[in-house]
Amino acid sequence: MDALKSAGRALIRSPSLAKQSWGGGGRHRKLPENWTDTRETLLEGMLFSLKYLGMTLVEQPKGEELSAAAIKRIVATAKASGKKLQKVTLKVSPRGIILTDNLTNQLIENVSIYRISYCTADKMHDKVFAYIAQSQHNQSLECHAFLCTKRKMAQAVTLTVAQAFKVAFEFWQVSKEEKEKRDKASQEGGDVLGARQDCTPPLKSLVATGNLLDLEETAKAPLSTVSANTTNMDEVPRPQALSGSSVVWELDDGLDEAFSRLAQSRTNPQVLDTGLTAQDMHYAQCLSPVDWDKPDSSGTEQDDLFSF
């Protein structure tokens, strides 16, 4: 819950932080000083300027060897085509990944977070970031790969997607708890209302004896509580940590079903599988986004697919 609360507080303090972009060759504004600060901008989305290598189908939802083989196929196909790589912007948030063309600003792909089953910074092609997700059109699994400016960037994108998945799962947990509370309150309110109706004398007997209905007592009954809980029953509950912020979080049926399955089948359902080692994760978390744009010590960066 700490990640969720800190993310909400950060967004309320400075929503404009989320509009910064990394990996864009110096076009961005001043960047936060450390990885923790940038992680807090996830709610509205972190932007990464990358190059799209392509996509291939895979048979399993996750796995280092599986993704490595898929990336190898994608890279080989991209090299064989001889075409310049498409420059894209990857927007990562707890909602998922939005992929747009840098030149036309046209939407290429919009992947809900619950469809993503794996992401990684490839070991062999260490400047490549990739994720595996279920197609929104059918049940097939797709591996999408992107060329980053350097290994640090690939690791940073991988960690960002993993963190977005974690925050999304926490949102789901909060929403589920809130819905259970509202359902319980609604049920209790309905029981109270039913009890009051059972003990209320029939209207005919009131008229016969000349008694008047006590409207004041009726007004004191917990009807307002019942209506408050039943009027918006169809509205999706939102985490309290975000009250007053500009973010509107809505959970669709697909996300609810997917996270429910994860909660039942996995020990740590909030953790998205990645190909990063503990050492890689520690190294990337210690980086400032400013470091992502620094040239690798191995030599001059080449803006070309064939540089790796």
Rank of each mutant, 00 (worst) to 15 (best):
S243V: 09
A7K: 14
A284M: 06
A10F: 12
L43C: 10
D234M: 06
V58A: 15
T160A: 10
P269A: 04
K19A: 15
H137Q: 14
I98C: 03
E216T: 01
E33Y: 03
K91Y: 15
R151Y: 03
D280Y: 11
M124K: 11
A221I: 06
P15M: 03
H144D: 14
L255F: 05
T38F: 12
A168L: 05
K51P: 04
P32C: 02
S298K: 05
E170G: 11
G244I: 04
Q197R: 05
P201G: 04
C199P: 04
P289C: 02
V247G: 11
E217S: 05
D303W: 07
Y131M: 06
S14L: 00
G45R: 15
D252M: 10
S227P: 02
A284N: 02
A130E: 10
A278M: 07
I116S: 02
S112I: 09
A195E: 08
L107D: 11
S243E: 09
K87C: 10
S6M: 15
T300F: 02
D183H: 06
S243H: 04
A78L: 13
D303G: 08
C199E: 11
G194H: 05
L47R: 15
F259C: 02
K5W: 07
I71C: 09
A7G: 13
T209F: 13
G54T: 10
Q173Y: 13
S175A: 00
P15K: 03
H28G: 12
C148K: 02
I97R: 11
L255K: 10
M55H: 10
T267V: 02
R238N: 02
S245P: 00
Q240I: 11
V128H: 08
G63R: 12
W22F: 15
A284D: 08
Q134A: 13
L159Y: 07
V167Q: 02
G254I: 01
N102I: 10
T89S: 03
S227E: 07
K204T: 03
L203T: 13
L213F: 05
D234E: 13
H144W: 12
S297P: 11
S245W: 01
G190I: 09
G23T: 15
V192A: 11
A168H: 01
F146T: 14
S246M: 13
E178N: 00
S288D: 02
A164N: 03
Q279Y: 05
V128E: 13
A154W: 03
G8M: 15
Q136G: 14
S112A: 00
I74A: 12
K30F: 06
C148W: 00
P289W: 05
D126K: 05
P15E: 00
D126H: 04
V161A: 05
L242D: 02
I12P: 04
K184H: 03
I132L: 12
Y131A: 14
F306Y: 03
E180D: 15
K84H: 10
G25H: 09
G190P: 02
P15R: 15
P94N: 09
N232A: 07
T277A: 10
K127N: 14
E217I: 03
G96K: 11
Q187L: 04
P237L: 15
L66M: 10
A121H: 10
